[in-house]
Write a protein that binds this DNA or RNA. Structure first.
Lengths: 151, 151
DNA sequence: ACGATAATTGAGACTGTGTTGCAACTAGCG
DNA sequence: CGCTAGTTGCAACACAGTCTCAATTATCGT
């Protein structure tokens, strides 16, 4: 896996160390598909017999983000989810309020408009968040009649 | 102030009561300009000599949102800010990582694209969040050389 | 106006998520 | 091999927001 190497390079460049814990975390990260939160990952590690502390995991997430391997998705209520960014490029999310499913979408048009807006306001953009909330196809029927206004 | 009336109507319709606390909260809400957080508002109330508990404030915010009088802006790190929506319509935000300033922008184009994206994915949209992070004109110079990657 | 009753309140305990201080440990370098 | 700076686990902490519960109060029917 060249991903491990990539991270190793990142660590070296920043005078950080490739510890057993970091290797373990990265290993398991690569086997997750879709979006996950910190506890998902922690449980996964525990089940595999690894004892990586919560603190260590939290301490290493910023490095994994900074190295470009994962991406953080800030949800409502201060919930954070993560996703592997290896071999992918930027996209945004549609979050189903019914079942929690996260769909992804890309829109070069929106990206272009953002650049335009920023220029107009003399704003230097470093990042953005764009989430659509609602109900996925499967949930829409039930949710609509249940008064799905909230959120 | 017809706003009070509007809220009173909302309360009646939902079999809720117009308590002294709700009146006080609403009163002070109307005098805030720009974005504020819960503590801002709480301090404001305290300074004016009102003793509304934190719990009560938190309990009433969802009603104020639901009635359409205020709007919640979810920021990074689980921070929440609010803004008065009386006499305004939907807009999104640009958040300066340097000084915390919040600029607003509207883009019918983006709204249209969202609708399009939702149709394609059979997603029923009930709301969205669109935030651009970066540095405002005033902060951009200093922030850039300080390594403003994070975020 | 009055009393019944359901909503509301304040206080503080509690939850969930994430952070931090510190002593022990360890990767990486020479 | 041994030094040194980075790292770890733990447990205490921080913080926003929620909940429980007894006491209070707005509203409604009469």
């Amino acid at each position: 896996m060249q991903v491990i190497e990539r991270f190793a390079q990142y660590l070296t460049k920043h005078k950080l160390k490739m510890t057993r814990e970091r290797r373990v975390i990265l290993d398991h990260l690569l086997s997750v598909r879709g979006h996950f939160d910190v506890d998902d990952l922690l449980v996964r590690l525990r089940k595999a017999g690894h004892r990586v502390s919560r603190a260590t995991l939290y301490r290493n997430l910023p490095r994994l983000i900074d190295s470009g391997l994962i991406h953080k998705v800030e949800m409502a209520h201060g919930q954070a989810r993560y996703e592997l960014m290896v071999g992918r490029h930027h996209h945004d999310h549609m979050i189903c309020l019914g079942c929690g499913t996260i769909l992804e979408f890309e829109s070069p048009e929106v990206e272009r408009i953002q650049v335009e807006v920023c220029r107009r306001k003399k704003f230097v953009m470093t990042g953005h968040t764009h989430q659509i909330r609602g109900y996925c196809g499967a949930c829409a029927g039930g949710a609509r009649r249940a008064g799905g206004k909230r959120g």
